[in-house]
Amino acid sequence: MIDGLVGGRLYGEAQIRTGQNGRRFVTCKVRAATNDGDTIFVNVIAFDDDVQTALLALSDADSVALSGTLTPKVWTDKNGLVKPALDMVAHKLLTAYDGRREADE
């Protein structure tokens, strides 16, 4: 298990799902830039109610920073190239909107 912090932009919209046990969770994808200029996709799942609410309030391409548990993965694109990816169970989330709300108070 790796605890990590990932910053990037939401790729698409967050989706509400329901597990076999009836528990609600939210999934989304985040595009994060790497040091060499490539992009890595982070597959995010959130069980925490506050994180779920915040993810659902975001739109495609909104900036986000997430902390949580990371699992490295690989996937193969349509051209047969193996690409890195990360799976994250998000525990905390920060967006640009959070800073605006605090400044308004």
Rank of each mutant, 00 (worst) to 15 (best):
R17P: 08
N21Q: 11
Q15H: 03
R23L: 12
P84W: 11
G22V: 04
D98A: 09
Q52F: 01
G8Q: 03
R9A: 09
T95N: 08
D98L: 08
L81H: 12
D104R: 13
E102H: 09
G4Q: 02
T53Y: 10
Y97N: 10
A54S: 10
G12E: 04
N43L: 07
V6P: 05
A54I: 00
G80P: 07
A14H: 03
K92I: 00
R17Y: 09
A32C: 08
K29F: 04
Q20G: 13
Q15K: 11
M88W: 01
A57R: 15
P72S: 11
D38S: 15
G12H: 05
Y97C: 00
L66N: 10
D87I: 02
N79V: 00
N35P: 10
G99F: 15
A33K: 13
R100E: 12
K92Q: 15
E105R: 13
D62Q: 11
T53G: 03
T18A: 00
L94V: 13
A96S: 10
S67P: 01
I45S: 15
A65E: 09
Y11R: 05
A33S: 13
T53E: 14
D49S: 12
M88Q: 02
S63Q: 10
T39D: 09
S63P: 10
I2K: 14
M1P: 06
E13P: 00
A14C: 07
L10W: 09
L5V: 11
D50C: 02
C28S: 06
D60K: 12
D49G: 02
V6C: 06
T34K: 08
V44R: 03
Y11V: 01
Q15F: 08
N35Q: 13
A14I: 10
A103P: 01
A90P: 04
D49A: 14
R9W: 01
L86N: 01
R23Q: 15
A103R: 12
L55P: 05
I40E: 09
D62I: 11
F25R: 02
C28V: 05
G68H: 04
K78A: 08
L94Y: 04
Y97Q: 13
V6K: 03
F25N: 01
D36N: 14
N21P: 00
D77N: 15
D98Y: 00
D77Q: 04
Y11M: 01
L70W: 00
D36S: 13
A85E: 06
V26S: 12
